[in-house]
Design a binder for these strands. Structure first.
Lengths: 188, 188
DNA sequence: TTGCAAACTTACTAATTAGTAAGTAGGTTT
DNA sequence: AAACCTACTTACTAATTAGTAAGTTTGCAA
């Protein structure tokens, strides 16, 4: 018999549930039922829901670090496009990003989770700031503010863009991307 | 004895809880305990949690309509500032906006709630679009895209701005406001 | 072949959840 | 003053929740 890799399946499903409905809107029962295992099997891999939530965020941190490495050799515009594309995929799959999901439920989550999440948010923001700073210095992007401010603007556009797409439709999101590029001066 | 206006207190508290932790992170017990009444008193005013959630959204729709009327006679820039200020107050009170709160939990909420929420989102977006269209025509705002696109950009900046402020601090939000104004050409 | 550990299941528990039925106190209407 | 209504309380229930303790199976190593 094949190794079903239950642990990874639980982790993936938990992330999808957090980004579909929020952390406090899914139960261990929903996970075990969906994967065809028993409730205790989920607790075997992740003793508490807080541990599961933490692991979801930690794996997202690792995934972003991998993304950084994998795209490091690309041009700035290709890096930005790759970043935006991850949100386009979210929008098509009706999934919000972790930053949005965790921040909205902030005061209903274990402090450990929100603290680890702060690290991921800084990581993404620092990366975007650096990208924009270099791009501005090289004359590739045009904006009249600090690169950290522009980074906040683009990240908030994307984070709430996938949220508002649930209420207004996916065209709203693709339209938004065009706007971001126009303001950066990278439209052609 | 004074009229305690329990119904209004429940409604206000419910909105605050939704915008602090999310709809599925608070209970009728939390409401009744906080207000010093019994669980059944909450059910007397709002028979089901879905009804309570719907009333929260409906009262927000009414509030936005009142906002529109009250600010209609102001200049475009004053109207925009008034709109932005409601988000600044949110940020200071660590509250996200309803659009963000409802959209993140979207697939964990009763369909009635998300449908009514779509109405509020359209209402806000249409208002902002109209404001930006007139402001652009009058040469007050400068942007090189459709006014509906710029409306989406500003609304997503504000919605996710208050979210990301929870993870990165309130300076991130006030910084973001400056960025929005710079891109609109209404800085200083 | 025996021993052992990883990955479960079986069978629970205690707490919390939304929701209800029946009663009651106090003011208003008739 | 009798009837009635509003705004509750008392006292529940059934379902769901996260979490646990004690087995069981299966593959692998000694």
């Amino acid at each position: 018999m094949k190794r079903p890799d239950t642990r990874q399946q639980i982790l993936d499903l938990a992330e999808n549930l957090i980004r579909s409905k929020g952390y406090n809107s899914f139960s261990y029962h929903e996970i075990s039922h969906t994967l065809g295992v028993k409730n205790a099997a989920v607790h075997y891999h992740f003793p508490t829901k807080e541990v599961l939530g933490l692991e979801v965020i930690r794996s997202a941190i690792q995934r972003f670090k991998d993304f950084k490495e994998e795209t490091a050799s690309l041009s700035l515009e290709e890096q930005l496009d790759a970043f935006i594309q991850t949100y386009s995929i979210n929008s098509e799959n009706d999934k919000v990003c972790l930053v949005g999901a965790i921040s909205v439920e902030f005061y209903g989550l274990p402090e450990n989770m929100t603290n680890v999440m702060k690290g991921l948010t800084r990581l993404i923001h620092d990366w975007a700031t650096n990208l924009l700073a270099i791009g501005k210095a090289e004359g590739m992007f045009t904006f009249d503010m600090k690169p950290e401010t522009k980074a906040t603007m683009i990240i908030t556009n994307l984070a709430a863009g996938v949220q508002i797409a649930r209420l207004m439709g996916n065209e709203t999101f693709s339209d938004l991307i065009k706007g971001i590029k126009i303001d950066l001066g990278v439209n052609q």
